[in-house]
Each structure stands twice: as structure tokens, then as C-alpha cells.
């Protein structure tokens, strides 16, 4: 894209190559600063809540040295809880950013700059992934104090951690673009994200479920992210690991395309 150089009172129009790197970086940093500004709410509060969840579930369900998937119950539970905190925060970051901007009307500040739909998608998703990873690290460190956390395969942890955060960041963007009011996005959180993440096998081994529900559970992409992530920690998986990688990559590609088209067509963003 070639721009003509205009002279506007001594300022020159900035030339960009194929990718507006500076714009992308600015958008990314805006998203990151937005949550770091209120880090008690966005990093510490999820950490406290997740540790409390670990405590109550271990107290209520883990009595009498119970073993799940070959490891103590708390060790089985910890990776799932870390993943739940990560995905919920990744979703919250992109969705709240978009909905607040839309409700307040300052979404134009994001739409007006010379950023292509792909750059918008990447910049915002980057912010969500960053928050997801940071929350995951904070929660993981917190749990490490109380529960023996073993690491079996760091590559699986990294892959599924990033992929899950990316998936929920993209879902958050789709939900945020679709929502016109705060209650729309609250409905998406309550009726889509929470059920999917609760019923994903975080709190129990999927093998405990009745036969039919096991099959249903395999259609939940959240199951694969938690299963693969947990495999990275304890070395035991309920499902097929290769299939999990394929599903996560496929779902992310699809969601990326949807988000990209939403920005490109201006669905519920541009009048």
C-alpha cells in the first residue's frame, strides 16, 4: 500500500510497510495496560478465588487420600483450576474491552486508526492471551505453595496454555462485538462460558461419567484444553492427545477467521 507524502504544516504522513507494527504494538500495549492498571482485580482476585476453590474442593471431595488419574486429588485438580482461571480472564479481558468501548462510544478510537482487521484481531487477542498467561502464572505459583505440582511435559503446558487463552480471547471478541449492552455479554458468560468450563472435566475424571455423557464431553473443546494441559503436569490424559492438539488448532483457526470477518465487515461496530 503506497501512501502519498502530504505536507500538513510541517508534519509528514508516516509510511507503513505491509504491517503497521507500531499501531499493532500500541493497541497491544493499550490492552495490557488496561488490565495491569487494576491488577488487584484482574490478577490478585482471580488468584485468591482459585486458591479458595482448590481448598474447598479438596476439603469436600478429596477426603481419605483419594486418588484420581493416578495422583492425589489436589494434584489432579490444580491444573484444571489454573486453566479455568486463565480462560475466564482471557475471555473477560477482550470482551469487557470491546463492550465498554462500544457502550461508552470510544470504540472509534480503535476503529479509526490505520489498523487492518487482522491487526485489530491480533492486537486485542494478544492482550487477552497476555492476561491469561499472567493469571495462569500467578495462580500456578500460588498453588505450588500448597500442592505438590509436578511438571511432566512443559511443551504441552505451553501449547495448551497459549491455545486456550487464544481461543477464549477470540470468543471474548466475538461475544464483545455481538453484544450491544452489558447484559448481553453477561448472558454469554453465564450461559456459554461458565457451563462449558465447569463441565469440561476440571473437577472429575471424565471416565466417571456415564457412557453417553462421556461421548458428549468429547464434543466440548474445553475438555481437550484441560486434558492436554493436565497431561503436561501429571502425565495422565483422559482423551487422545493428538486429537486434542488438532481440535485446539482447528477451533482457533475457525474463531480467528470469524473474528477477522467481523472486524472486516464492521458487524455491529460500524454504522
Amino acid at each position: 500500500m503506497e501512501h502519498q507524502t502530504l505536507s500538513l504544516g510541517g508534519t509528514r504522513v508516516r509510511h507503513m510497510g505491509r504491517v503497521n507494527w507500531r499501531g499493532l504494538w500500541t493497541l497491544y500495549m493499550k490492552e495490557v495496560r488496561r488490565f495491569l492498571n487494576v491488577f488487584t482485580q484482574t490478577l490478585l482476585a482471580p488468584m485468591v478465588t482459585t486458591l479458595l476453590f482448590l481448598a474447598i474442593f479438596t476439603l469436600a471431595l478429596g477426603g481419605g487420600g483419594r486418588v484420581v488419574g493416578g495422583v492425589p486429588f489436589a494434584t489432579f485438580l490444580a491444573p484444571g483450576l489454573i486453566m479455568m482461571a486463565m480462560v475466564q480472564n482471557a475471555f473477560a479481558n477482550t470482551s469487557s474491552s470491546l463492550v465498554i468501548a462500544k457502550v461508552q462510544g470510544n470504540i472509534v478510537d480503535v476503529l479509526m486508526p490505520p489498523l487492518s482487521p487482522a491487526e485489530l484481531t491480533l492486537g486485542m487477542a494478544g492482550g487477552g492471551v497476555t492476561r491469561g498467561i499472567m493469571v495462569g502464572l500467578a495462580v500456578g505459583l500460588g498453588m505450588w505453595i500448597f500442592v505438590p505440582v509436578t511438571i511432566h511435559n512443559p511443551l504441552f503446558i505451553l501449547f495448551h496454555g497459549v491455545m486456550a487463552s487464544l481461543m477464549l480471547s477470540l470468543l471474548g471478541m466475538i461475544g464483545g462485538i455481538w453484544s450491544e449492552k452489558f447484559d448481553h455479554i453477561a448472558a454469554v458468560t453465564n450461559f456459554v462460558i461458565t457451563p462449558f468450563s465447569f463441565l469440561s472435566g476440571t473437577f472429575y475424571s471424565i471416565q466417571r461419567l456415564p457412557e453417553t455423557w462421556q461421548i458428549v464431553a468429547h464434543f466440548n473443546p474445553f475438555f481437550y484444553m484441560i486434558d492436554g494441559f493436565r497431561y503436561g503436569f501429571i502425565g495422565h490424559a483422559d482423551g487422545n492427545l493428538t486429537l486434542g492438539i488438532v481440535v485446539m488448532a482447528g477451533v482457533n483457526l475457525f474463531l480467528w477467521f470469524v473474528t477477522y470477518r467481523m472486524f472486516a465487515t464492521g458487524y455491529r461496530l460500524k454504522p
Partner: peptide, 14 residues
């Protein structure tokens, strides 16, 4: 958010 995260949720869950 701080009151909710550090007072109400812990009081309720514990």
C-alpha cells in the same frame, strides 16, 4: 472488585 474478591468471596467460600 477488591471488596468482592478479598472479603466477600473468601467469607462465603470458607
Amino acid at each position: 472488585g477488591a471488596v468482592e474478591g478479598f472479603l466477600i468471596v473468601p467469607l462465603g467460600l470458607l
